[in-house]
Amino acid sequence: MTTATEQLHPPTLEPGDYTKYKIILGTLGVVVPVLVAVLFYYKNIFRIEGAGHYLRMLPAVNALLNSLTALALLVGFYFIRQKNVVAHRAAMLTAFGLGGLFLLSYVAYHSQVESTHYLGTGALRYVYFVLLLTHISLAAVTVGLVLFTLYFALTGQYTKHQRIARWTFPIWLYVSVTGVIVYFMIAPYYPAA
Rank of each mutant, 00 (worst) to 15 (best):
Met1Gln: 12
Ala4Ser: 13
Thr5Phe: 08
Thr5Gln: 14
Thr5Leu: 14
Gln7Glu: 13
Leu8Asp: 13
Leu8Gln: 13
Pro10Trp: 04
Leu13Gly: 01
Leu13Met: 08
Glu14Ala: 15
Asp17Glu: 12
Asp17Cys: 06
Thr19Gln: 13
Lys20Glu: 11
Tyr21Ala: 14
Lys22Leu: 10
Ile23Thr: 11
Ile23Arg: 11
Ile24Gln: 09
Leu25Gly: 02
Leu28Thr: 01
Leu28Asp: 03
Leu28Val: 03
Gly29Trp: 07
Val30Asp: 08
Val31Pro: 08
Val32Thr: 11
Val34Ile: 15
Val36Leu: 14
Val38Trp: 11
Tyr41Thr: 12
Lys43Ile: 04
Ile45Ala: 07
Ile45Thr: 15
Phe46Gly: 04
Phe46Lys: 09
Ile48Leu: 09
Glu49Pro: 03
Glu49Phe: 05
Gly50Tyr: 06
His53Asn: 14
Tyr54Ala: 13
Met57Glu: 12
Pro59Gln: 06
Ala60Pro: 07
Ala60Cys: 08
Val61Thr: 09
Leu65Ala: 02
Leu68Ala: 09
Leu71Glu: 03
Leu74Val: 10
Phe79Arg: 11
Ile80Asn: 03
Ile80Arg: 06
His88Tyr: 04
Ala90Met: 10
Leu93Asp: 01
Ala95Ile: 00
Leu98Met: 03
Leu103Ala: 13
Tyr106Ile: 03
Val107Met: 13
Ser111Leu: 07
Val113Ile: 11
Gly122Ser: 08
Gly122Glu: 07
Tyr126His: 14
Tyr126Ala: 14
Val127Asp: 08
Tyr128Trp: 09
Ser137Trp: 07
Leu138Asn: 04
Gly144Asp: 06
Phe148Glu: 05
Phe148Lys: 02
Leu154Asn: 12
Gly156Trp: 02
Gly156Ala: 04
Gln157Asn: 15
Lys160Met: 12
Gln162Pro: 00
Arg163Gly: 04
Arg166Trp: 08
Pro170Tyr: 02
Ile171Leu: 15
Ile171Ala: 04
Trp172Thr: 00
Leu173Asp: 02
Ser176Tyr: 01
Gly179Trp: 00
Val182Cys: 05
Tyr189Leu: 05
